[in-house]
């Protein structure tokens, strides 16, 4: 297969061409040669000018339709970004409200936990209250008397109590024991010191009513004193045992 005939060209080889180029390159100061040089110089100048112009080109050199296109692009970008901002704002608000809800639920749960721990006697508690001291040198105070005192304090709104170093909770029991009283199995001896947190005046009043705890103690030959304080600490703790039989009934409301 022969290559297609090229356009007719003068009979010469590459050497001829180079020679011709050299010959053309010989300096010849004709008028048109100078003119050609001038043109070439202006071309070089123009190329550099254009290159510099292109590299520093800003918006002010663009054509109207290019500007319109850029403007439309910017417009579109702006709308797209605005949409994005709105979306993100929405999710931010959503997340914030969720976080707030979670925090509130957590706080409520924490409050509930604190209340329950104080009720169950697993957390120490402090606050205004009274210290009831029953000095019983003759051993005349028995378990029912102490239980009466505790019930009286509960009636008066005591929120946390301890006798000597035993916390008093819902299932605390009292029994007589030799040389003292057994409180939930712990042996305590006189003087009995009952610490109760609550409205201190109400509690003190409950102790001193006619036929109340102080009167009964005095009758039995013991000495009961009530000390009102702005801050008492109930720091005797109990450990909670998991109920063996009782199970919570699921609430229907939730």
């Amino acid at each position: 297969m022969t290559p297609p005939e090229r356009a007719p060209r003068p009979p010469h080889d590459a050497r001829d061409a180079w020679a011709r180029l050299r010959r053309a390159g010989r300096p010849a100061l004709s008028r048109s040669n100078l003119l050609a040089m001038l043109l070439a110089a202006s071309l070089g100048f123009a190329i550099i000018a254009q290159v510099r112009q292109t590299s520093v080109q800003g918006l002010d050199t663009l054509r109207e339709d290019e500007l319109v296109r850029i403007f439309a692009d910017v417009d579109q970008d702006g709308e797209r970004l605005g949409d994005e901002v709105r979306d993100l704002q929405t999710s931010l608000e959503l997340l914030e409200s969720q976080t707030t809800g979670e925090k509130e639920a957590e706080r409520a749960a924490q409050q509930r936990l604190d209340a329950l721990r104080i009720l169950a006697g697993t957390a120490p508690a402090a606050g205004p209250g009274i210290v009831l001291t029953i000095d019983d040198p003759t051993g005349a105070i028995d378990a029912p008397t102490l239980l009466d005192a505790v019930q009286e304090l509960r009636d008066a709104g005591a929120e946390a109590m301890q006798v000597n170093d035993v916390r008093i909770v819902a299932d605390t029991w009292f029994a007589d024991a030799s040389g003292g009283i057994s409180v939930s199995g712990s042996q305590i001896r006189p003087p009995y010191v009952v610490t109760a947190i609550g409205d201190s005046n109400t509690l003190a009043g409950a102790m001193q009513i006619v036929g109340g705890v102080t009167a009964t103690a005095r009758q039995k030959g013991a000495e009961a004193t009530v000390d009102i304080r702005t801050r008492v600490v109930v720091d005797a703790l109990l450990s909670v045992s998991t109920p063996q039989y009782a199970r919570p009934v699921p609430t229907t409301t939730s």
Partner: peptide, 15 residues
């Protein structure tokens, strides 16, 4: 040759 010199000259002047 002369035009090539001119081109180079123009570029230099432009720079």
């Amino acid at each position: 040759m002369i035009p090539a010199v001119g081109l180079a000259l123009g570029i230099i002047v432009g720079l």
